[in-house]
Design a protein around this nucleic acid. Structure first.
Lengths: 224, 224
DNA sequence: GTCTATACGAGGATAGAC
DNA sequence: GTCTATCCTCGTATAGAC
């Protein structure tokens, strides 16, 4: 029994074509890099998780650094796009901030490895690769929202730059610290949907309360 | 010209005795581990910073892991002691929280590498070594303060566990993210005394405002 | 206690068959 | 495109002189 190429059109077992292979590598790499960072990540470990040969990494991504860049870019893409779709400029500062935080926390809950990766990048490489990833925009947006709110008097007179950083911390630290925190009796399921939901609520509440201007005594007109 | 041992009592050039050597190694190791974490840290790099031979590390600390344990313990000691000296139990929750945050931020400003090390530990090793370092107490204290404040009604009804984590994030993320943030034009001197001072103020203000119960309408007695 | 020299294993990267 | 086998650098750890 003979089969020509024409008969089957495609070969019988390309369960993994080019793009599929790249995808599994990227996924596994994301995990490895998030946990260990560029330097400590092991290409062997990545290959082991995927099931494909180690050499595929070099075939598709040139070397470990190339793979790292690819992972970094892909991870930030979702976050970046989500945040950019906010059109925060047309919202009241309070609403803008809340929507921003919600978007941020949604993204990160969807990909809890992201903060850890950013963290490794920051500390190990001093943001050498991060810079390219244009995720800098995210920080700029949060600063801008805060500036507006302060100018409008709905936020208390805070330092927007400092506060933007601290707010990020309020939201993201949870994901970074999860490893440590899980040593606690309570912290078993820190990344379960329920806990993630709860964390989002708590973080948003803390931040909104933290930036809001104290109920203004000189307010000319008050509603509610 | 001959000199006996007795004449000089001690040898002429023991610029580095045992303890001094250990100290410089520990200092250099702290830096290296903070930046790279256990796995990615290079014993060679540590030795290079100290000026002593690489083999001294193994002489005094058995191996890289031994050195890591020693560094971790030493780094946490200051923080742990400072926080334990708070006797927060005799303070009003608001005051206790403020003092706690001030102590935390003082410690960390004194040793900005600490947060990075904690987080490498959290992510790379899932808190395997962190557990021993009894720094867990710190988290417990912050939770306890929050619980009291909520019970007393001076804090809004927040989740103490979640909030404790998020508050830590508010304070510590700054140090972790410094590497990334320094890519910014503004963020040149993020760890200068002035900026550290500013960060402490901003973080404390954000947290205190974030947890405080909204001005109670049913307050029986109001002063100020 | 401190150094230099070196053994040895781990891991990044490549060659070449299929 | 994918695999196996291999090279070779780098880094941990030790041996042994001083």
């Amino acid at each position: 029994m003979v089969r020509t190429k024409a008969e089957k059109v495609k070969k019988a077992k390309p369960v993994r074509d080019a793009i599929a292979t790249q995808a599994v590598i990227l996924a596994a790499a994301e995990e490895e890099f998030a946990q260990h960072g560029l330097t400590a990540a092991r290409t062997e470990a990545i290959a082991a998780k995927t099931g494909v040969a180690k050499s595929m990494i070099y075939y598709y991504f040139k070397d470990k650094e190339g793979l790292y860049r690819a992972v970094l870019e892909r991870s930030h893409a979702d976050l970046l796009q989500t945040v950019q779709n906010l059109d925060w400029e047309h919202l009241f500062p309070e609403v803008a901030l809340e929507k921003f935080l919600q978007a941020l926390l949604d993204c990160v809950s969807r990909n809890p490895k992201l903060p850890a990766m950013m963290f490794h990048e920051a500390i190990q490489n001093h943001g050498k690769y991060y810079k390219d990833s244009s995720s800098v925009d995210i920080d700029r947006i949060s600063i801008a929202i805060l500036e507006r709110g302060v100018a409008a008097g709905v936020f208390r007179p805070l330092d927007p730059f400092q506060s933007a950083i601290n707010i990020m911390g309020t939201c993201l630290f949870y994901f970074i610290g999860a490893g440590n925190i899980q040593q606690f009796p309570q912290g078993e399921q820190l990344l379960s949907p329920a806990m993630l939901q709860r964390h989002a609520e708590e973080a948003i509440a803390l931040v909104l309360a933290g930036v809001r201007a104290p109920s203004k005594p000189i307010a000319p007109a008050e509603h509610e």
